[in-house]
Amino acid sequence: MKEWDGIERMGYKIPEDDGVVMISDYKQNVKEKAGVYRIYNEQDRIMYVGQSHNLKRRIGEHFRGKRKGYYIYRVRYFYVEHENNFILNSFLDLYETLLIRKLNPRYNKQKSSPMRYI
């Protein structure tokens, strides 16, 4: 994807995953830290990409809440840290939008602005 290559040339790369969790082990493994996550169904298809300032709480909400027509099989996530809250929010938005653009999850429709505006 041409837009993705441009972002990477600027030095913004999606971090490696810090973890993969199932419903049975997210409480022990996911920390109460900011980050970005991807939800996969039982066929290993990506269903949703999201972000949160508290991944443990947000992933738990997905596991406990009403699903949008898909079964949550596993969640991949990575943490994003910065001492400046504005920059932290900017990175969360950037990484979430880039993953949505790259992976095109079925249930993410809100990030539809052209890449040139990022």
Results as ranks from 00 to 15, higher is better:
residue 14 I to P: 02
residue 29 N to Y: 09
residue 112 S to A: 12
residue 40 Y to C: 02
residue 70 Y to F: 15
residue 48 Y to T: 00
residue 8 E to K: 11
residue 60 G to I: 00
residue 34 A to H: 04
residue 19 G to S: 09
residue 41 N to Q: 06
residue 118 I to L: 15
residue 25 D to Y: 09
residue 46 I to D: 00
residue 56 K to S: 12
residue 16 E to Y: 12
residue 74 R to K: 15
residue 57 R to Q: 14
residue 59 I to E: 02
residue 49 V to M: 06
residue 75 V to Y: 02
residue 36 V to M: 05
residue 86 F to N: 10
residue 48 Y to C: 03
residue 111 K to F: 08
residue 32 E to N: 09
residue 118 I to F: 12
residue 40 Y to D: 01
residue 107 Y to L: 10
residue 36 V to A: 08
residue 17 D to C: 05
residue 35 G to V: 08
residue 84 N to D: 14
residue 107 Y to D: 02
residue 44 D to E: 05
residue 81 E to F: 15
residue 108 N to P: 01
residue 31 K to P: 00
residue 30 V to Q: 02
residue 106 R to P: 01
residue 52 S to Y: 01
residue 30 V to E: 01
residue 55 L to M: 03
residue 66 K to M: 12
residue 35 G to P: 02
residue 83 E to L: 08
residue 24 S to F: 10
residue 91 F to N: 04
residue 41 N to H: 06
residue 80 V to T: 04
residue 82 H to R: 11
residue 41 N to A: 04
residue 7 I to Q: 04
residue 104 N to E: 13
residue 54 N to M: 05
residue 7 I to H: 06
residue 18 D to C: 07
residue 28 Q to W: 03
residue 53 H to C: 03
residue 55 L to P: 01
residue 51 Q to M: 13
residue 26 Y to A: 06
residue 58 R to H: 07
residue 72 I to Q: 07
residue 63 F to P: 00
residue 112 S to N: 13
residue 68 K to L: 14
residue 20 V to W: 04
residue 31 K to A: 12
residue 79 Y to E: 09
residue 102 K to C: 05
residue 59 I to Y: 00
residue 113 S to E: 10
residue 101 R to L: 13
residue 117 Y to H: 11
residue 102 K to R: 13
residue 74 R to Y: 04
residue 28 Q to L: 08
residue 17 D to M: 07
residue 35 G to K: 11
residue 67 R to S: 15
residue 72 I to G: 02
residue 1 M to A: 11
residue 84 N to L: 07
residue 114 P to G: 10
residue 93 D to S: 15
residue 94 L to Y: 10
residue 4 W to I: 14
residue 90 S to E: 08
residue 13 K to P: 01
residue 5 D to L: 11
residue 59 I to S: 00
residue 112 S to K: 11
residue 49 V to N: 04
residue 86 F to Q: 08
residue 104 N to K: 15
residue 69 G to A: 05
residue 36 V to L: 08
residue 44 D to R: 11
residue 1 M to T: 02
residue 15 P to C: 05
residue 73 Y to L: 03
residue 90 S to G: 13
residue 34 A to W: 06
residue 85 N to P: 07
residue 41 N to M: 04
